[in-house]
Amino acid sequence: MSEPPRNLDHDLLADRRRMKRRLSLWRGMAVLLALGGLFLLAGPRWMGGGVPGAGHVLRLSVEGTISDDRKLTEAIDAASRDPLVRGMILSIDSPGGSVAGGEGLHASLARFRAEKPLAAVMRGTAASAGYMIAMPAERVFARESTLTGSIGVILQSFDVSELLATLGVQAELLTSGPLKGVPSPFRPLEAQGRDALQRVVADMHAQFIDMVAVGRDLPRDQVAQLADGRVYTGRQALELKLVDAIGAEPEARAWLAASHQIPQTVPVRDLDPRGAAERWLGVSVRAVVKTVISEWLAIDGARAVWQLPR
């Protein structure tokens, strides 16, 4: 006897049902992914107790040594174009850093100020490049005991030629000109090299003075008299018109409300261009290496930094 024929219609129907279930599953996953993407893009702007679309105030905290940071300047530029960013509070606790790093951050903050309100709040220390970056702010607050000012530039080297001679070691330098490789730890700094480097420091110092004169709307000669490298307390800085008022973030929020109609109920969000791993660690290993090697041990890097006596 032959076997009965298989029910092909039943098998096809079952296959179609399985395919339909799979398609439904994939469609559902696609919808969830799309919703998740929208939440990542728009959700953070609506969180924090604010009304959707009401915007927020950014808080940029600059702490420690200031170095050239492309990610940070790009984040500030992006914030200046974000319609939901209504203003920024620049919170500073820094003794300064590289001249180029301070100049780059100053420039990006000036671009932000051209578009939106910017207030600076000086905490424990806002000296040298830490003071420089506050100059674009429309309103600068400091505590009475804040250490600020230190308007100046430092370029330092060291001479180990005598030590090497004692050890019987002689360094040979081949350069394309008498000023190439100046300063060098392997030979004393001669008058020609010292004069050339002093002119470089003087030019950077003049640029710093110009930033302060423009930012504080003060005569350049008046700023030049204050720019001998010394630090000032917040109270002294207020008397010298280097800051606008004594206060902290609450006073900055009150000023934004009174001067720019940004209610104090508008949420504040931290501007942090670091990746998730860096935020978790609290500090970037790359930044540490760069700070130690490039900013502190380099013999040819000009810095605008207030150094504690050793």
Rank of each mutant, 00 (worst) to 15 (best):
A100Y: 01
L33E: 05
K116P: 01
G130Y: 01
D221H: 02
W280Q: 14
G64C: 01
I151C: 05
A137Q: 05
E239T: 11
P263K: 08
A252Y: 03
A34Q: 04
D210Q: 15
G48L: 09
Q264V: 11
R86K: 15
V289Y: 01
G87C: 09
Q207A: 04
G152L: 04
R303S: 09
R59F: 00
D270N: 12
L308Q: 13
L40H: 07
T148E: 04
V160D: 07
M19L: 13
L155G: 06
E138G: 14
G234P: 13
A196R: 12
W280D: 05
G37D: 10
R303A: 09
H205C: 00
Q236W: 13
G28K: 05
M132F: 11
Q170V: 15
R27A: 14
G282N: 02
S91R: 14
D270F: 10
A287R: 02
W255T: 07
A78Y: 05
A119D: 01
T233P: 14
F141Q: 06
E74H: 13
Q192H: 05
S161E: 14
T175E: 09
K71L: 11
M122K: 02
M1S: 13
E74M: 12
V62I: 15
D159R: 09
L60V: 07
Q307A: 10
D300F: 01
A304F: 02
A30L: 08
A110P: 00
F208Q: 06
H205Y: 01
G104H: 13
D228M: 02
G104Q: 12
R286V: 02
M135V: 03
G193V: 08
P267M: 10
D228Y: 02
A252N: 08
P185E: 09
A79I: 12
L271D: 14
R143I: 00
G149F: 08
R21K: 13
W26L: 15
G282W: 03
R230E: 11
H10Y: 14
V231K: 07
N7L: 08
V289K: 01
G36T: 11
G50E: 11
E74N: 10
R143T: 03
H106S: 00
L60W: 09
S161L: 13
P219D: 05
I262R: 10
D15N: 09
M122V: 06
I133T: 02
M211T: 07
D272S: 07
M132H: 09
G234E: 10
V51C: 06
L38W: 08
V51E: 15
G49F: 07
R286A: 02
I66N: 04
G168P: 11
P273H: 09
I151F: 08
A119T: 09
A257S: 12
K241T: 11
Q192L: 10
E3K: 03
L271F: 07
D210T: 15
F186L: 15
A100R: 08
A252Q: 06
V99W: 01
T125Y: 04
L13H: 15
A129M: 04
A120H: 03
R143N: 08
L226W: 03
P83Q: 04
L238C: 11
A14N: 14
Y131Q: 06
Q261V: 11
L12W: 10
A287N: 02
L281M: 07
G101H: 03
E115H: 11
L297F: 10
L84W: 14
E144F: 01
R45W: 13
R45E: 14
G97M: 02
R86G: 05
L23G: 06
V223H: 00
P95K: 12
L32D: 00
T125A: 06
D77I: 05
L38Y: 11
G152E: 01
W46D: 12
V85A: 15
